[in-house]
Nucleic acid binder design. Structure first.
Length: 299
DNA sequence: CACTTGACCTGTCCGC
DNA sequence: TGCGGACAGGTCAAGT
């Protein structure tokens, strides 16, 4: 799932479900991708979840050891659990009453957890569990102190959030990279954060821009259309997934929800919904770009 | 330097 | 049915 809309949806769901819960234990069989920093596993026992957040595609679970002090100061005891889902990560919370799931649709999000892709299990004192499943083991978990420096160095360099960036800032940042190919730049997290292969394809389709175009070749109107196209496709995806996390599971079978609104991504050979030309896929910069060869011309 | 390629992992699907 | 190769919602390190 690892793009902004999917991360946003699961973060919103988790915020409703695990805020206030107390961690009982953490189990993992995945030392290679589990970074404790200065902490150890016992530092998480008894901590309380204070919020679940998102930066780019990274999930942040804020926890606190303190006994709810009167002052709202962030003490040294606050810890941030960072989770990156990479290509095939999933986060699933379930307890006796509820279940929320988000992430990559393979294996199906309704498959019971733990299962063979389960890498980390966070157990809470209410009997609920948060499972981090990741088929390909590309994802990671980092445990750091909740201060700006620690958190941002663990995440890496991030540009403005794709949902929050203004059109003005978007176009100003583009101007600094005239030679970049537009699709590659959109997926660069230090340029804007949150956009990956799906939403770069979707945004470019909406703007009728070929993914291999250079930034310098884009007209002002095209830059505006691209900005709008990205905003629209991100928001549409959040809406589709946001009504209920379970719709992720139900609506698209194993392929997941996104196929129900994708215009270009994964639509290889299907008619473009604007002009009927079959959608093409081409390898570009190491990734598959999906586009309409007729609407999105390489000038 | 900038840019490209490989590596990280495991699984599915498609063609012969 | 079996086997090989391509491919996968991401990112970093190493090589050129």
């Amino acid at each position: 799932m690892p793009e902004l809309p999917e991360v946003t949806v699961i973060v919103n769901s988790l915020n409703k479900k695990i805020k206030g819960l107390i961690l009982e234990s953490v189990e993992y069989d995945w030392p290679r991708k589990f970074f404790w920093g200065n902490y150890s596993i016992k530092d998480l026992k008894g901590v309380k979840v204070t919020s679940v957040d998102r930066k780019g595609k990274v999930v942040l679970i804020e926890v606190s050891k303190g006994t709810k002090g009167a002052k709202g100061t962030k003490g040294a005891k606050d810890i941030t659990i960072l989770i990156h889902l990479k290509l095939t990560g999933q986060l699933i919370y379930q307890d006796a009453k509820t279940r929320v799931a988000g992430g990559h649709p393979i294996p199906p999000l309704n498959l019971p957890s733990p299962n063979k892709t389960t890498r980390v299990i966070f157990a809470f004192t209410n009997g609920g569990h948060l499972y981090f499943n990741d088929l390909r083991k590309f994802g990671w978990v980092k445990i750091v102190s909740s201060n700006k420096y620690q958190v941002s160095s663990a995440i890496g360099e991030l540009g403005p959030d794709a949902l929050e960036i203004s059109f003005r800032e978007f176009s100003e940042r583009l101007e600094k990279k005239p030679n970049a190919r537009i699709k590659k730049l959109l997926m660069d997290q230090s340029f804007v954060s949150g956009v990956g292969n799906i939403y770069s394809d979707e945004g470019l389709w909406r703007a009728k821009i070929h993914p291999a175009r250079s930034v310098a070749s884009l007209s002002d109107a095209e830059v505006k259309a691209l900005y709008d196209g990205i905003q629209e496709s991100l928001k549409l995806a959040i809406d589709k997934g946001g009504s209920s996390a379970n719709s992720f599971v139900d609506s698209g079978g194993e392929k997941g929800l996104f196929l129900t609104f994708a215009k270009a991504y994964y639509m290889i050979g299907k008619p473009c919904s604007r002009c009927g030309t079959p959608i093409a896929r081409k390898k570009m910069d190491g990734r598959s770009a999906h586009f309409c060869p007729s609407c999105q011309k390489l000038k």
